[in-house]
């Protein structure tokens, strides 16, 4: 009857910087997959293969990875994180400008975040 997948909380290992709330334990966040996947302006112009590429295929790189996180237990904002998939180091986190989940927000916002770190 339960319709939602059970979300097991991992140990609070990573410290993730919410661009609004500051550094918080990993357990406050939910993961949203690779960032920078822009929704095609006209999905119907795409072939089935191109559409499948947008839908299902992700880079899964070794090293720097830009990804979406949601501060689910906090301010409910989605934001971007650049994380190294080998060392798990988080190089930066950034607000999204919106259109296109990839694009970081305007420079002045980023600068203030840099200062925080």
């Amino acid at each position: 009857m339960n319709t939602a997948p059970r979300r097991w909380r991992t140990s609070t290992v990573l410290l993730i910087e919410c661009p609004w709330c500051g550094p918080r334990a990993e357990t406050e966040f939910s993961y949203g997959g690779e960032a920078g996947i822009e929704r095609p302006a006209d999905p119907y112009a795409l072939s089935d293969a191109e559409w499948a590429d947008y839908l299902f295929f992700r880079r899964n790189p070794r090293g720097a990875h830009r990804e979406l996180w949601n501060h689910a237990q906090g301010c409910r904002r989605w934001f971007g994180v650049e994380r190294d998939t080998v060392s798990y180091r988080i190089e930066k986190s950034y607000r999204l400008s919106g259109a296109g989940s990839a694009r970081p927000a305007a420079a002045h916002i980023e600068a203030s975040e840099e200062k925080r770190r």
Partner: peptide, 8 residues
């Protein structure tokens, strides 16, 4: 103040 986790 902070929205955060307490217990689960």
């Amino acid at each position: 103040c902070a929205q955060t986790g307490l217990g689960r």
